[in-house]
């Protein structure tokens, strides 16, 4: 617990982050690939001309819910609160289009690109974080949340 931020989960966040980084390291050193979820998911369903063999992309993508459900079974469940379905559909469309146009998301640009000190990824991460901050601020200003 951090003073002033009663809801923060720094230890769980750090442990989960280490697992995510290790997963990305296995992808890099094992298969020579970036563990970028948007690119691999697009590749898995045939919406990307480049990337690893389809089997690899499908296996990684399927692994995500498998790992999550294993953790949920071993713990007391994973709490999650979702926005309304209408918002989710709008957000999903925007996220799908934007991540492909920008060649990456939080995993590819954020985790893999930042740690590589890639200038493209540093710019992309700064921009999607900045526009995320601005979007939520606007939602608060307009009373949506």
């Amino acid at each position: 617990m951090i003073a002033g931020f009663p809801d923060a989960q720094p230890i769980a966040g750090l442990i989960g982050g280490l697992m995510i980084g290790l997963a990305a390291a296995i992808m890099l050193l094992g298969l020579g690939r970036i563990a970028g979820v948007s690119g691999l998911a697009a590749r898995a369903i045939g919406l990307s001309a480049s990337g690893p063999p389809h089997g690899v992309a499908i296996a990684f993508t399927v692994g995500l819910p498998v790992g999550a459900v294993l953790v949920a079974l071993l713990s007391d469940g994973i709490p999650a609160t979702f926005p309304a379905p209408g918002l989710l559909i709008v957000a999903g469309l925007i996220v799908g289009f934007g991540t492909r146009l920008g060649s990456g998301c939080t995993s590819g640009h954020g985790v893999c690109g930042l740690s590589r000190l890639s200038r493209r990824s540093i710019v992309a991460t700064a921009l999607f974080m900045g526009s995320g901050f601005a979007t939520v601020a606007l939602m608060r200003l307009t009373g949506m949340i």
């Binding site: 289009f97 998301c105 710019v123 999607f128």
Partner: peptide, 18 residues
């Protein structure tokens, strides 16, 4: 542009692809 657009969707839904 792609990164900015992605950030808007991320803010609205609180979800990214992973």
């Amino acid at each position: 542009l792609g990164a900015i657009v992605f950030g808007i969707g991320w803010g609205i839904g609180g979800l990214c692809p992973g």
